[in-house]
Computed example of a mutant assay.
Amino acid sequence: MYEYIQGSLAELTPTHAIVDAGGVGYFVNISLQTYSQLEGKTQVKLWLHQIIREDAHLLYGFTDVREREIFRLLISVSGVGASTARLILSSLTTDEIQAAITTENVNLIKQVKGIGLKTAQRIVVDLKDKVSIGEATVSQILSTSNNTLKSEALSALVMLGFARSAADKVIDQVLKEMGQMPVEALIKHALKRL
């Protein structure tokens, strides 16, 4: 199994990139998220997921490990293949996908072209517990202070026994209404509303 590929970008389209690594051009399928991150770059590093079928060996590439982890979770759902997972990642950001799954927002997932109600529900049901676990194990939380603040407060509330989705909503409300504050203050305000 390949972990990543690093080299010069020979070709870039919204659906694939050709990466020249060691004199060999690798055809790598990408999402629009990855495409937007690669635009204008000449040297790239893509985290890979390889799919071997009877008729093809396919590489899917991602600019960060977190996007690859979401891709792997999506393809683990019955009825969601690599093309559908890539379409979901092209339509929604990784944060939007995680939020939709944890808050059971089936309608947001259903808005992706080709995703019906049953598939969207299956994604939510199958991944609800895995997304929060995946997020913690991958620990690829964005480095903005607001996300760090939110993640610390969310972890504390979950450890106190509150449901992750309920705590997440309350923290978002508090941050929206009151703005930045120390973690302790955010937790106290969230506890009053839970």
Rank of each mutant, 00 (worst) to 15 (best):
Y4K: 15
M1K: 15
V170F: 04
V19D: 06
D172V: 01
R53E: 08
Q43F: 06
V44R: 00
A85V: 07
I133S: 04
G25T: 12
I115P: 03
V77T: 07
N147Q: 15
L46H: 08
I18Y: 00
K128M: 04
V125A: 02
A156P: 05
L48Y: 05
G61F: 02
A185G: 05
T144S: 15
V131G: 00
L9A: 10
L46I: 00
A167F: 05
R164Y: 15
L12C: 07
K45G: 08
T84P: 03
A99V: 13
T137K: 12
S155T: 14
E135T: 15
T102R: 10
A10T: 07
T148F: 05
L38W: 02
G134M: 12
E69P: 02
L157N: 06
N29W: 02
T103I: 12
L38E: 07
L12S: 00
D64M: 07
I5W: 05
I51T: 14
M178F: 11
V19Q: 03
S132M: 10
V131S: 02
V65L: 15
T13S: 07
L117V: 14
F27V: 09
S143C: 01
V44I: 10
T34S: 13
I70W: 03
V106C: 06
A17K: 02
A166S: 13
L87E: 15
L38M: 09
D95S: 14
A120H: 03
D95Q: 13
G179N: 03
L58W: 04
S76N: 09
K169Y: 01
N146L: 10
V158T: 12
Q180E: 13
A56L: 07
V65M: 14
K128L: 07
K45M: 13
L87D: 14
V183G: 00
T119R: 10
A99S: 14
V170C: 03
E67G: 02
E152N: 12
L46P: 00
A185M: 13
T102A: 10
L48C: 05
R72E: 09
L32I: 15
